[in-house]
Design a protein around this nucleic acid. Structure first.
Lengths: 128, 128
DNA sequence: ATCAATAGTAGGAATCTTTCTCGATTTTAT
DNA sequence: ATAAAATCGAGAAAGATTCCTACTATTGAT
């Protein structure tokens, strides 16, 4: 992988913003430091960095894909109230791969889990 | 909900094709019986039927959304070789909602789980 | 330092999927 | 049969993402 100022800026923008930004959000943030950067460059590098395993792409059932600088195995939940995306651990998925391989012969290579609902804030102060 | 020939045809097309078709695939299939049906009508009714709980919409991380006539709790795996989408049971996700509610205060309302990998066929005849 | 080869960029066009608009048609209720 | 409501067909429009092209920067060998 070669270096470029733009690529470095894009990577920094994702890793420094633990908000799971969309490509467009990365574009807006990156433009503050480099107003000449183009949206195409942002997409190209986000995808490139994801393919290299330096970032993770999180696809959402609705709206734009998001990007995450955290690389360890974890999943996400999106609040339908405020739109924020939160991290969530899920040990429940461990062992699932083997079970599926044995029962259906399907070799699992990637897992996409997204939970949607309401975060503590959006459930209101009096909620459970 | 009112009746219409098109809506009935679209519903039938999904329930009779257990291949989790995309909107476009439904359109192509439905056109064989009604060549005048429009893509907009297909989308409108697939979404309508999903909202009514008569069909399920499955969003994919890559490519178009798919639709499923099966309503009980189950998940999907997509083969990166042939592109087919298979059903998969996952008891592992039961109890996850409560665990997340207790640990993070997040109320889970919907779950999206998609596994990607290689199906038995695509792994080749000699594989495991 | 110079030249050629390579990689990367900006900007915009193009693509793909999905939704929207609106006049025409069909369905439902009376 | 008639009016109101729902739905349709066709195409325009929107939103997200990718592709294309010409230009610029970087690298490596001389």
């Amino acid at each position: 992988m070669n270096y470029s100022k733009q690529r470095e800026l894009i990577l920094k923008t994702v890793t420094e913003n633990p908000v799971h930004p969309t490509a467009d959000a990365v574009y807006e943030l990156a433009r503050r430091e480099n107003p000449k950067i183009s949206l195409g460059t942002v997409y190209r590098n986000l995808n490139f960095l994801s393919e290299m395993g330096i970032l993770r792409k999180i696809s959402m059932p609705v709206g734009s894909d998001r990007f995450d600088g955290r690389l360890d195995e974890h999943y996400h939940m999106i609040c339908t109230g405020c739109g924020q995306v939160f991290d969530v651990e899920c040990a429940a998925l461990e062992g699932l791969d083997r079970q599926i391989l044995e029962s259906q012969g399907f070799l699992v290579q990637k897992r996409h889990l997204l939970l949607a609902g309401l975060c503590k804030e959006c459930r209101g102060p009096e909620a459970g």
